[in-house]
Each structure stands twice: as C-alpha cells, then as structure tokens.
Amino acid sequence: MIKYMKRRNVLKSMAIAVGGAVALPSWASHWLAAQLPTHSFLSNATSSLLATVVETIIPKTDTPGATDLGIGPFVEKMVADCYSKTVQENFAKGLTQVDALTQTRHNKGFAQCDTAQKIAVLKAFENHSEAQLREFYGLVKQLTILGYMNSEYVMNNITHYEMVPGRFHGCVPVK
C-alpha cells in the first residue's frame, strides 16, 4: 500500500511540478476511505453498532452520510491508533451502554430503532450524569465530524478545499 501510494504521489508531484493539469491513469485515482482496513479493538457486532451510531450523527440525506463516506471504520481506526488503552476501553464500554439503554427503552437493538429513537438515545449520552459516558459520546461525535469534514466528498463539494490556492489576498469583502 505504501509503495502504491508513493508511486502515485510521485506521479502527481511530477504532473504538478511541470505545471500541467493533473491527468493521471485511472489506477492512480480513487483511493477511498471505505477501503481502509478496519481495526479490531471492537467485536464485529460493536463495530457495526458504531457504524450505525456515526450514521445517526451524520445521516445520508440528499448528500452522502457517514456510512457512504466510510466514517465508521475511520472512527474505529482513530480510536485504535491514536488513543490510549484507557480511552479505547471507555469507548467500547460506551458502545455497550448505548446498546443496553436502547434495549431498556425500546426492547430492540439500536439499529432497529427509528431515527428519532436513535437520536434520543445518543442525546441521553450527550447529557449523561457519568462523565466517562459524556466523554465517550463527545469523542464519537468529534471523530465523526473530523472524518466527515476531512472526507474527499465534503472537501471537494461542500467546503471547496483548495490544495493549491496560488494566491493570498489580505483584505476582501465578505461574500
């Protein structure tokens, strides 16, 4: 994978360095978040619960949602790679609690609930009396937003990120 990425970047670098438009062979484009390997500090069932939680936080509407953009696996990977064991354990515990609360309230799994029920369950964690569970929810939401806002779709279509602005104007009217 590293080798593949490297080769592609060199090609891109060359394309840009010579000032031409970036025209690359098809094998060099489309490297999607959805292809990221998943990490396994969560069981398969908990992983899919997480995917449903992040889809609830950022759902598909007329634009792609968390599932379409691979945010579930991304959040899982971030927690696995970038946080301590303590945070990981609290994260897994939080997901178990989501499941437990849903069972208590609705006598079914989180994924089987309707949108309003799902949101209500998550809001219960946002305002939970236990600090650890509030932190769990805060982290899921924060990482979901991070993955979403830094996704190829959002950066290209909503925030219009420019890799190469080529300019700086210090004072322009607010549009």
């Binding site: 970047n9 891109k12 060359m14 971030m78 790679d81 970038c82 950066m155 990120y161 890799m163």
Partner: peptide, 21 residues
Amino acid sequence: VTDYPTTMLQPWEFEHRNRLP
C-alpha cells in the same frame, strides 16, 4: 520532489487525518 512522499496527499488521504498515532 521524488522523496517528498506526502507532498501531494490530500487531507483525506492521511490515514489519521494528519494526527499522530
């Protein structure tokens, strides 16, 4: 150029969105 492996990576192409593991 050739030994700048991340220079053309878009933000979404970083596994951890540029955070340190």
